[in-house]
Design a protein around this nucleic acid. Structure first.
Lengths: 352, 352
DNA sequence: TTTATTAGCGTGCACGTGCACGCAATTTCT
DNA sequence: AGAAATTGCGTGCACGTGCACGCTAATAAA
């Protein structure tokens, strides 16, 4: 329903108004080739007066240009954190496909630096126009980003980042604050005396500890607000549910005063069996991240609160934003996007 | 980076493979005109084998078709609830403009049935391909939707709906559940004895009460879980902050035992002055909806919890989904979208 | 002054689809 | 049997842009 006095202007209209040809308008708009200053001004004025915007459909049809982005993220099993991130990328890629955006995925092993190096090289071989990655291996990622800087290839971080690099974009939560929020929620109902902080046994080969900032946010909050409380740390083996069970039994038997339990990584669901077999209506359990298993635990009442955000949303927004900025050759309005932290309980679990 | 063995197929490829001309392929794909059953089958097979998908850019360029949607929503002032809804619509419209989607907005006066009737007629005059509205005046909206049914015009509800109509799509919260959630949060820290439920004085001309379901969710939860508590209702005048102040002073002076305050509409910010002038660290205040004024109150500690959702997101998603379904001439996958309710506190206020 | 060079500019083709027109073959009507 | 209508199908043009080619006139070099 376009006003007939003002049909959408085309290059022809601009050219006519400026008294030049389409080609000249094109050269002015895209700084290709040689145009006299006089014509340039006339064209720019005409563009302004007519409010000319190139027809993006015609433009993409004519150009047939593709924008390839390479993602380098950790391997995952169905339903895990990085699987959700991956879903967000795929969703965004589907939406952006008609704009010529293509995606290539590279998965590395979080316990193996070499696999990261291999995949980052493979990503370069794609000749992409942008790279998305996360930063588990700080040194290697720093080096890689220097390489990208030299090549003039823009890159973006998802989930965690390295501040010293020249990344174009970042989407993720503020891990320290999420830890504080978890601590606040844990202590909301009644002040904690003894707290269990459950952690994961890690391969000695895993140098990086991506969970540190959140854990510190958690412990700092507790220490500041409840200086008289004690935080007991217990380690479980994520690969061995049997030993996990025994470890927990022993641990909680030794500390019967514990009414507050928290896990600052995304695997609170590993406690399910123990929590089910040792019900306690007074106990408060706080976990992080909306993995399907975690949501189940919340629904069944084993876990009281999850601190999370819509995980796929975060990667979806990142790719959309990144592609937009690369295509339009403009820096994004904002560089750091700390996504909102949701508080999830049994009461607002639906429709998440 | 397309595999050179499989360039993206075009109608020409399909036509060649099927041994017919482009025109025939076109007729098969869009059921226009006369095709022999034999050719039809050949074309369909070729489409399947080549995985042909029409190039949407070329298609839109050639068609130049516009899809006009008319929205009928309440008038608002900057920063109010419907203003946020409106922002979501505008955001979606901007994104969808290159797909030929246009938007026409109609604002009516929530206290005046006639203005709704006028605007709904105006919306029809637009000759849109879809209508979006909310349902304050139940009878009139029901009649209007019957009219739309007869015209075969699809319509969608935002924020609230009328179940008996044949709406195509709905996005909103479950108001009853949001009320329950508010009650749960209000009673989380310690069990309530006396509760203040602050309500708004309403024009006698306002027949509808869009806030009822949420209020009932709230009171039902309280009555069920805290049968010994009493809910005191107090009415304030949203247009007169001076009288509001006096009313509240008198009310709370008469009920000094009240430690729990809730407003089930979106205007908890109206209590700001009272709460500021009568601080009480023990008191719990729960409100709804992320209006800018409300967020301020949360930040400054006058309000403890807001139950909300990202308001513009809801209208943005609705328009996107609705346009998608109208353009593709397919019913949406899901009809009712109860958006997730966020719990907002001082601790997770950032980046919302 | 003549020739080579380059600045400035116009034009034609391609991109893939939608749609209208019209031709040939077949069927129906008179 | 001849005219009229209908079925089945191919073709041409338009949509608005990107880009390469090549022309003209001005300028620099010989």
């Amino acid at each position: 329903m376009q006003n007939s006095n003002h049909p959408i202007p085309t290059v022809y209209d601009v050219a006519e108004r400026a008294g030049v040809s389409r080609g000249t308008v094109d050269r002015v708009l895209y700084q290709r080739g040689r145009v006299s200053e006089q014509s340039r001004q006339k064209v720019l004025r005409a563009v302004e007066e007519l409010q000319y915007k190139p027809n993006s459909n015609a433009s993409r049809l004519a150009r047939k240009k593709e924008y390839l982005f390479s993602c380098i993220i950790p391997q995952f099993n169905e339903g895990e954190y990085w699987g959700e991130i991956n879903n967000g990328f795929l969703e965004a890629a589907a939406l952006l496909s008609e704009r010529g955006v293509r995606l290539r995925l590279h998965f590395y092993d979080q316990t193996d630096v070499k696999s990261f190096l291999a995949e980052s090289n493979a990503a370069l071989d794609d000749k992409p126009c942008g790279i998305i990655m996360n930063a588990v291996f700080r040194d290697e990622v720093t080096l890689f980003s220097q390489q990208l800087d030299e090549l003039g290839l823009p890159y973006a971080f998802i989930d965690n980042k390295i501040d010293e690099t020249h990344y174009a974009l970042y989407y993720g939560v503020d891990p320290y604050k999420s830890g504080e929020l978890g601590a606040w929620l844990l202590s909301l109902r009644f002040p904690p005396k003894e707290i269990a902080l459950v952690r994961l046994l890690r391969d000695s080969s895993q140098r990086a500890d991506p969970n540190r900032p959140r854990r510190h946010g958690f412990t700092d909050y507790i220490n500041e607000h409840f200086p008289d409380s004690t935080v007991h740390t217990v380690f479980i083996d994520p690969k061995d549910s049997c030993s996990t069970q025994k470890t927990l039994e022993k641990f909680f038997a030794a500390h019967p005063g514990i009414k507050h339990i928290c896990m600052t990584n995304s695997r609170i669901f590993l406690l399910e069996q123990y929590l089910r077999e040792h019900p306690d209506p007074e106990r408060i359990v706080v976990g992080f991240d909306e993995l399907k298993h975690n949501l189940k635990c919340l629904e069944r009442g084993y876990v009281n609160v999850l601190v999370t955000r819509h995980i796929p949303e975060q990667s979806k927004l990142l790719l959309t934003d990144f592609a937009e900025s690369v295509i339009s050759r403009r820096a994004p309005k904002r560089r750091d996007h700390y996504v909102h932290m949701d508080i999830l309980t049994r009461m607002n679990l639906d429709n998440y």
